[in-house]
Computed example of a mutant assay.
Amino acid sequence: MTQPDTLSLTFGALADPTRRAILARLLAGEASVAELAEPFAMTPRAISKHVSVLEAAGLVSRGRDAQRRPSRIRAEPLSEIDDWLTAYRRLWTQRFDNLDRRLARQTKGTPDAETQ
């Protein structure tokens, strides 16, 4: 059985809004499952399952602090998404630059070759 690639695991983990909210909370610092469960109408056990999915995708690591197992965010998988988006970002930038040039020509009253 082949393992899914890390990008697919990351996107799969981020597909759920609860998991995205957990990551947003972890941006403020590490938290236990009980602390992560506070804003949700879910049991700590359900939140723990979400944290496990995030952990499997490499987005979260769990430590041990006495009786507490704090979760903390890991940025590496998010960096991989950013790398993947680079080509698309170039495309968007190019299209926005083209739009800027077109709007500038229209503002100056220069006829647009595409509309003639």
Rank of each mutant, 00 (worst) to 15 (best):
V53G: 01
P44C: 07
R72A: 15
V60E: 02
L27P: 02
P70C: 09
L78Q: 03
A34Q: 09
P4D: 05
P4K: 08
A13G: 07
S48C: 02
S48M: 05
P44R: 14
P17V: 07
D65C: 11
R89F: 06
L36P: 02
D16P: 00
L7Q: 04
T93E: 13
P17C: 00
L36D: 03
E35G: 08
T43M: 09
E55D: 12
E30S: 14
D97L: 06
D65P: 03
E35A: 14
K49N: 14
L26H: 03
S79A: 11
A24L: 10
S79I: 15
I81Y: 05
G63Q: 05
T93Q: 12
A21Q: 11
T10S: 01
A57C: 09
L99D: 11
M42T: 06
L85W: 13
P70Y: 11
R72V: 13
R64W: 09
T93I: 06
P17E: 12
L59W: 04
R68D: 10
A13V: 04
E30A: 12
Q94P: 01
D100E: 15
A21L: 09
T86K: 14
R69E: 05
A56Q: 13
R101P: 00
A31W: 03
L7K: 01
L26S: 01
R62E: 09
R68C: 04
L26M: 08
I47K: 02
P17Q: 09
R20T: 11
R101M: 10
S48F: 08
Y88I: 05
E76F: 01
E38V: 15
R45Y: 09
R62F: 14
A21F: 02
Q94Y: 08
R45T: 09
A37D: 01
L26F: 12
V51M: 05
V51C: 14
T93W: 01
R68H: 08
T93M: 12
R101S: 11
L9V: 01
L85G: 13
P44F: 04
R105I: 03
R62C: 07
R74W: 00
A21I: 00
F40D: 00
R64I: 08
S52Q: 12
L54S: 01
A37G: 05
I22K: 03
R102A: 14
R102W: 06
A75C: 08
T10P: 01
A24C: 06
I73D: 00
L78H: 04
E55M: 05
P39I: 04
L9W: 02
N98Y: 12
D65I: 05
M42V: 00
A31D: 03
V53E: 06
P77N: 08
R102K: 12
N98Q: 14
E55F: 01
E76Q: 13
A13P: 01
P70W: 10
L91K: 14
A104Q: 12
E30Y: 00
M42S: 10
A15N: 15
L99E: 15
A104E: 15
E35V: 06
R25H: 10
H50L: 05
I73V: 13
A34M: 07
T43N: 06
L27Q: 11
A31E: 04
T43V: 07
R20D: 05
S71N: 08
G29S: 08
R90M: 08
W92G: 06
D83T: 14
F96H: 04
S48A: 15
T93S: 13
R89Y: 00
T18Q: 06
L85V: 07
D82P: 00
A34R: 10
L7W: 03
S48V: 00
